[in-house]
Amino acid sequence: MHIHFLDPYHAGRSPIHQLDPRVKLVLAVAFILTASLLPFGAWPSYILLLALILSIELLTEMGIAYFLKRAFLALPFMLAALPLIFTVQGTPLATFTLGAWTFTISVEGVERVASIAFKSWVSVQMAIVLASTTSFPQLLAAMRALRIPKLLVAIFGLMWRYIFVLADEALRLLRARAARSGARRDAPYKTGGTLAWRARVTGGMAGSLLVRSFERGDRIYAAMAARGYDGETRTLPLPALQTWHWLVLGAGLIIYILIWLVGALIV
């Protein structure tokens, strides 16, 4: 079994795929920034953001369902925000008692939780669009163009090359453990040793993964040095942005500002 299915990038030729990675990265981050800047309860702006991201998803020609399904990934984190429906003071919506405790749900609290969920939902969709329409080398080129330290980008690049190799290795370790761990399904037999023992076995797996990686790192360095590596990664820079790239970038940013103004002025 290979782990390549993990890479969310889908090759394609849609307008979103073909957009310059620098422009795409900036617009994606600016979209998330816009969502974060909006005050709680700015529903008109939220609707516009949702319409915008849905339109972009349509334009990727990958099917909206793909994005909506993946977007549930951030859902478990909502647990952190949920208590706000009780703690935010405001117009009471419902009150119930549980033993000695009385809980009051406030309208403002519900609105705030819904706002957080919505902002998080549209933001994660934009991040998915970015990751699924931009190949990793393109993302690296964009990062370099946006002045992220060259060294860090080079490490990211090398990490990406080996992430699948090492993930395969981790899966092999897990498969080997499963293969030597017989277990009876019928109840009274307890299998698998104590908790500490299980943790120790897993620790041993992590340790051996790390030892192999140290050695692999040495071998990779030797191979790179043999091919003339001198600590500098040389890459072809991306071509200069053309006028229409600047137009797309400017138009996108103006739309974000308008959406923000709607939210900030009306609500």
Binding site: L151, A154, I155, F156, G157, L158, M159, W160, R161, Y162, I163, V165, L166, A167, E169, A170, A206, L209, L210, R212, S213, F214, R216, G217, D218, I220, Y221, M224, A225, Y229, D230, G231, T233
Partner: peptide, 17 residues
Amino acid sequence: ERQVPMMGVLAAAIFAG
């Protein structure tokens, strides 16, 4: 100059770990 391969592989190892 060993930094790039070493850090890259170890980051991948922690991710996989």
